[in-house]
Write a protein that binds this DNA or RNA. Structure first.
Lengths: 206, 206
DNA sequence: GTTTGGTTAAACCATTTAGTTAAATCTACG
DNA sequence: CGTAGATTTAACTAAATGGTTTAACCAAAC
């Protein structure tokens, strides 16, 4: 056979789309089958049931997005470059998959522990690395002392939230799709400047 | 009768809880009935069907949270105080209702237009007010010139996101409930300082 | 005390949906 | 060719779920 994709792959892609759009409770097996251009029987031929299929997709998504991105934070780039690289990579990835955050946070509530492990953030040594870096910079007087937790939460908040609020942002500021993309593009410089400006030690101009 | 609450109120509260926890698709009418300590028949006696009930709750939540908070941003407080007041009020409100954001953003995808109107953000004159204020401050050289949209998105991102990511934050930084509350409490000062520090015009210390 | 509206309980109906099954077809491969 | 695995079709079952109905009950109002 010479299909572009194997049936199993088609199922996975379809399931991914539908689950991400509708969540576990909202997704219909029939809808997934239709999206994959196969019939329901095939679905169960490859995956025993809905939960199996969902778990499969969910773990794949988590395992894909979590570590790939956390890597940057644990790297030994200088702080400024690190922030820049993180934001650029993260926003790029989210731009291509704008529904991922809502999907993840929605389903997160049901199985927090599993997700955290899959993300691999705790085990990666990323926290320690970044913690040390921030303390070092602070000690050297280059930045204000900041809590690592607050720093990370700020960084990720600024990056992820706009995608969660996309419909709202577009509505409030009367943006179309293109303008929203432009808005996100701007944030690739806005966010790093914002953060660096916030934590760098400076004097007020009097 | 001398009940603390009328049956209709009990239904609403119960429905609110369940919908916010489970979303429209995930919520079960029986679960709502149980939560309200009544039987299913009563549910349909007061609300024709699930959609009606949901719409009711949803609009109530949107109408309650949106405007109350947007008011602060449209006020004529000085910028610094305004940010502080906004963050304090917002975080306080979210702390008492941590599931609201996920609920809103989840259901937002299905009816963006209605939500935006209900939030009343576009009509409140808030945008203009804040826009002028930021331009004035920038012209006076007290802050850097900033896009109003980027400013608002930053402010709300920093405030709301931690609640969406609460399970993740607790997991990653090994916080229990109490520590998480403490973390949020800290953000009431961290966020305003962060933002003010980011936009205030200063010189680097050399 | 009778009426009326809120309330309960339980059975019930109709629809949706996950999941199964069986038979027929197709396709690669030995 | 013939077998085996992949795929389709369509009918089916079982369970969950939204929604309805009926009869009985109760408390307050008239």
């Amino acid at each position: 056979m010479h299909e572009a994709l194997t049936t199993e792959q088609r199922i996975k892609e379809a399931a991914r789309k539908v689950f991400i759009r509708k969540g576990l409770a909202g997704a219909r097996m029939q809808e997934i089958a239709d999206e994959a251009n196969i019939n329901k029987a095939m679905l169960h031929y490859y995956y025993r049931n809905k939960e199996q299929l969902f778990k499969n997709i969910f773990e794949e998504v988590v395992g894909e997005f979590g570590p790939k991105i956390m890597g940057v934070l644990g790297s030994d780039l200088p702080l400024k470059e690190k922030i820049s690289a993180f934001v650029t990579q993260y926003l790029g990835m989210l731009n291509a998959n704008p529904f991922i955050p809502l999907f993840l946070f929605s389903e997160l509530r049901n199985q927090p522990e599993e997700v955290i492990e899959k993300v691999g953030i705790r085990s990666s040594g990323m926290l320690d690395q970044l913690d040390k870096q921030l303390k070092r910079e602070a000690k050297a007087g280059r930045i204000k002392p900041v809590s690592t937790a607050q720093f990370i939460v700020n960084l990720i908040s600024l990056s992820v939230f706009p995608f969660l609020a996309q419909p709202l942002v577009q509505g409030i500021f009367a943006m179309d799709e293109k303008q929203f993309n432009q808005f996100i593009e701007e944030r690739k410089t806005v966010i790093p400047e914002f953060i660096m400006s916030a934590i760098t030690i400076k004097k007020e101009v009097t």
